[in-house]
């Protein structure tokens, strides 16, 4: 009966993973044991059988299909901070206030639990209840009611920042996107009351998300280098299965 070490020695010979000293041990073993020689031949046979399966060429369009779908994450100095603390109870229960100072998005109170299954991989900022975000002047709003989906998005002016306050209700998932005017506005942070958002991320100047049930959350925006004018509309799209349910535009200037 062979030991486990001897079996592994023979397997390593099949896989050409023997050191010089192990190679000598392997040859000595095979010379002295018919069982070892038999096992070596069995393992070799399996290896040859597997080698008979030819390498496959991937579909010709695979590269293009991947390239069409991948968008590279935008580097953000705030991202590391968020990721470092997003799993910490400190964020959920009390760290938000000091964090807000760091990212200059204002002061939040303790937020709700993060949904550990949600994809917030591209988000930065802090979390908190939308109600804890100080109300600001209402600049514009958009309401929608299509099929089972209804809700509103309010654009608020806060001290040095703009806030998009979402209220969404639907029995089936609704995807949404917020196109921000390039350079004029930048995503800064978000606050979430409920924890059932399936996904929320920011990429290529757009905020993308998906919601189901009743959702309330706030997205904070900061002004970029360019002045925010009526020429800098914020476009809203609500979609389901690739079809647009509703479309709206918010104008980030005082009425």
């Amino acid at each position: 009966m062979m030991t486990q070490e001897q079996r592994e020695l023979i397997q390593a010979a099949v896989d050409d993973e023997l050191s010089a000293s192990e190679r000598a041990d392997f040859h000595a073993l095979c010379e002295s044991s018919a069982e070892a020689r038999s096992l070596y031949e069995q393992l070799q046979a399996v290896t040859h059988a597997l080698d008979s399966l030819p390498p496959l060429e991937p579909p010709a369009n695979l590269h293009a299909a991947i390239m069409a779908k991948v968008s590279l994450p935008k580097p953000s100095p705030l991202k590391a901070w968020f990721e470092r603390f997003s799993g910490s109870p400190l964020v959920r229960y009390g760290f938000a206030a000091s964090a807000a100072v760091l990212v200059t998005v204002g002061v939040y109170q303790a937020g709700s639990e993060l949904d550990s299954t949600a994809d917030f991989s591209s988000m930065v900022g802090t979390l908190g209840k939308p109600g804890s975000v100080a109300d600001g002047a209402l600049l514009d709003f958009h309401r929608y009611s299509v099929a089972d989906a209804s809700g509103q998005v309010r654009l608020l002016q806060q001290s040095g920042h703009l806030a998009l306050e979402f209220e969404m209700r639907s029995s089936e998932p609704v995807a949404f996107s917020v196109n921000l005017p390039e350079e004029a506005l930048q995503f800064e942070a978000f606050a979430q009351q409920d924890d059932a958002l399936a996904m929320l991320r920011f990429e290529d100047g757009r905020l993308l998300g998906e919601a189901q049930g009743e959702q309330r959350f706030v997205v904070l925006l900061k002004t970029g280098a360019s002045e925010v004018t009526t020429e800098s509309p914020i476009e809203l799209n609500f979609m389901r299965q690739g079809e647009v349910l509703d479309f709206g535009v918010l104008t980030p200037t005082q009425p």
Binding site: L62, I66, K69, V70, L72, P73, K79, E83, S121
Partner: peptide
Amino acid sequence: AQTTFLKAFENLHR
């Protein structure tokens, strides 16, 4: 294969 690359690149910063 597509999903693998998408997940890898979406989380590349991690």
